[in-house]
């Protein structure tokens, strides 16, 4: 049977589902790292988060909006993984359900579903949990690589956390209890491999960077956002380090610590919530970098990546307006 259709008659092999599938593949190294480092509890957190996000989207489509479920595009799976990545392994599972509802139900579906949300769903979910349950959200189990079923009894501090407390804001009792001491600062190699305390997906730099290369290779993203984001942070923290604003954390440690790599590679590159043009992406990334450094160094919060990206998300409509490409045949001789 012959058919009639309008031009073009052929299409690129890449559709939304393949793009999202490639993001999931890119997340696999970091998932494996999380399982290796935090063991069984990491698995529980990730599975709960993914299942909750997918279920939430499915149910909302099915029963609230009464449209065919959009879960087939895998984007809810990605949100689930990313939300899980932003949580400590020891978080009570019911809190994850709340996070998933905030991420998918409020941040994504209430705005009209995939492509319409202004803010990164996983980040909103994380920040919501962070302000609601600060205690649980900042208690990180120590890594126990290789020992899958080891219980998460010990808790440690992250590099950024140690610094915030050494600033003198905390009582000496708290300092000893949570081992906030400069001697407990992790070294580069541990930070690079992920043998440090922290949220599930943010600890292993090498796994995240592997994911980055996969996405670049598959042309899911371009290099601009990770590069400009990380460079901005590196340059600003170098300057501050030089002027002794941050005596204990050098620029390299800044790059490797906290959710910076996770944010720069997987969150600040989310299509929906970032600018469309290359120029816009660069602006966005630099903005994220500046805000991250400001929050990390001058605010009461140890970690600035989530807030920085969310704040920049809000500027995306504006950036998109500024950075429209020049139309051929206009404005140039």
């Amino acid at each position: 049977m012959l058919k009639i259709s309008s031009a073009p008659h052929i299409f690129s092999p890449v559709n939304t589902r393949t793009l999202m599938g490639n993001v999931i593949i890119a997340l696999i190294p970091a998932i494996l790292a999380a399982l290796l480092i935090f063991g069984f509890s990491a698995l529980k957190v990730l599975l709960t988060s993914i299942a909750a996000c997918v279920a939430c989207e499915y149910l909302i489509c099915r029963y609230l909006l009464k449209i065919p479920p959009t879960t087939g595009d895998y984007s809810a799976v990605i949100t689930g993984i990313l939300l899980g990545f932003n949580l400590p392994a020891s978080i009570p599972l019911w809190m994850i359900l709340i996070g998933a509802f905030v991420a998918i139900g409020i941040t994504k579906m209430a705005y009209g579903g995939l492509g319409k949300n202004l803010f990164n769903p996983a980040l909103v979910g994380r920040v919501f949990l962070f302000v609601s349950f600060p205690q649980q959200m900042t208690t990180w189990p120590l890594p126990h690589p290789g020992d899958f079923f080891a219980p998460d009894v010990q808790t440690g501090a992250t590099a950024l956390g140690i610094l915030k407390h050494l600033d003198g804001n905390s009582s000496s009792e708290a300092l000893t209890k949570y081992s906030y001491s400069i001697d407990n600062m992790p070294n580069y190699l541990d930070m690079f491999l992920g043998n440090v305390g922290g949220s599930l997906g943010e600890v292993s730099a090498v796994a995240l960077i592997l994911g980055l290369f996969y996405m670049l290779y598959k042309k899911v993203i371009t290099w601009h956002i990770p590069f400009y984001y990380l460079s901005t942070v590196f340059i600003l923290t170098s300057i501050m380090w030089f002027y002794k604003e941050t005596p204990d954390l050098d620029p390299v440690a800044h790059l490797l610590s906290g959710g910076l790599l996770l944010g720069a590679i997987f969150m600040a590159t989310d299509y929906v919530t970032t600018p469309m043009t290359t120029k816009g992406k660069i602006l966005f990334a630099i903005g994220c970098g500046i805000l991250t450094v400001i929050i990390r160094i001058f605010s009461a919060y140890p970690e600035g990546v989530s807030f920085a990206i969310l704040i920049m998300n809000a500027f995306v409509p504006l950036i998109d307006r500024w950075c429209i490409p020049r139309v051929y045949g206009t404005g140039r001789k």
């Binding site: 058919k3 299409f11 959009t70 929906v272 469309m276």
Partner: peptide, 22 residues
């Protein structure tokens, strides 16, 4: 030539990137 069903714009910017007319 299969025209897959249309889904929501994910703001990927690819259409902007490839347009030779800007």
């Amino acid at each position: 030539t299969a025209k897959e069903p249309e889904t929501a714009c994910i703001r990927c910017g690819k259409c902007v990137d490839v347009c030779p007319q800007g």
